[in-house]
């Protein structure tokens, strides 16, 4: 095979990478500038001096911004755990137990997964208000779990379908019931599927906006995207704080994405290809 010249390829790759990274890099650069540096003319392209005073300010003076991140984390973990348990069981039953309505349920679940979240708002807000679930972790966890269960069920059901069914049948012959098979055979064998699904659901929950906006009305209960977005509304627009808080809020996602890139990409494309 003859090698064709590849300079063009590298040029395109570099352009794509720069464009993808640039807003994030600029944000990080902004966060380590002094306030004067941020609003300076001529503009500072490179922070001089590099300073972490904005981070220090947040820690000492605006701990609510850290609270947002904690809230996001609690809701994300809760929602992920709940969807994996519920969705795992359902996915197992739908892919393995020859349920009569399996086809109908799978299609139905796919259909409801496309409901626009804003359509749920009037009703969810009203019901959560009356049930006392506004501004509770339980409330938002349940809402997010409902929102992301369809995705979870589809992901896990298609993952289970790739496991050899005979192992589960051997377990039946050995005397296990379906719940025990699920817990002691299917779970250990499909942890890569659970990891990929769990990571994606966590990211979904971390990023979700409309429900988090409406169901958490108290400042202290807000999730990171909502809290940071609404933060400026209370004073002038403090970009030094916003950029810093945003960096803090996206760092967990950046780390997760970087470490589990393969699993996330695999899960996403498998989910979309169905």
């Amino acid at each position: 095979m003859t090698k064709r010249p590849r300079y063009g390829l590298y040029l395109l790759v570099i352009i794509s990478v720069v464009i993808s990274f640039f807003p994030i890099v600029w944000l990080i650069l902004t966060s380590v500038k002094t306030t004067a540096g941020i609003y300076a003319w001529p503009p500072q392209y490179w922070p001089t001096p590099v300073t972490f005073e904005n981070y220090w300010t947040i820690i000492t003076q605006s701990p609510e911004l850290l609270r947002y991140v904690l809230n996001s984390f609690i809701v994300g973990v809760g929602c992920t755990a709940l969807t994996l348990v519920f969705g795992g069981l359902a996915g197992y039953a739908l892919s393995r137990l020859n349920l009569k309505f399996a086809g109908f349920l799978m299609v139905g679940i796919l259909a409801v997964s496309m409901f626009p979240p804003v359509s749920l708002l009037p009703s969810l807000f009203q019901n959560f208000l009356q049930l006392g679930l506004l501004n509770t972790y339980t409330g938002l966890i349940l809402a997010h779990a409902g929102l992301f269960l369809p995705f979870t069920v589809w992901m896990l059901a298609s993952y289970f379908a790739t496991l050899p069914v005979e192992i589960e049948e051997a377990a039946r012959m050995d005397g296990m019931g379906f719940l025990r098979i699920f817990l002691t055979i299917v779970l250990p064998l499909s942890w890569p599927g659970f990891v990929a699904t769990g990571l994606i659901v966590f990211i979904f929950s971390w990023n979700e906006f409309p429900l988090a906006l409406v169901l958490m009305t108290q400042n202290a209960m807000r999730t990171a995207p909502v809290g940071i977005s609404l933060y400026p509304g209370e004073y002038a627009f403090p970009w030094e704080t916003i950029s810093t808080a945003t960096v803090i809020a996206i760092i967990p996602i950046l780390i997760i994405t970087a470490i589990f890139q393969k699993q996330i990409v695999g899960g996403l494309t498998a989910g979309a290809g169905k």
Binding site: P164, I167, E169, A170, A171
Partner: peptide
């Protein structure tokens, strides 16, 4: 139930618990 039939089965793909 299969377990109460007094039968044991050997599968083509062995069907051993890999873990």
């Amino acid at each position: 139930d299969p377990k109460d039939r007094g039968v044991a089965m050997v599968f083509q793909n062995y069907a051993l618990y890999p873990h």
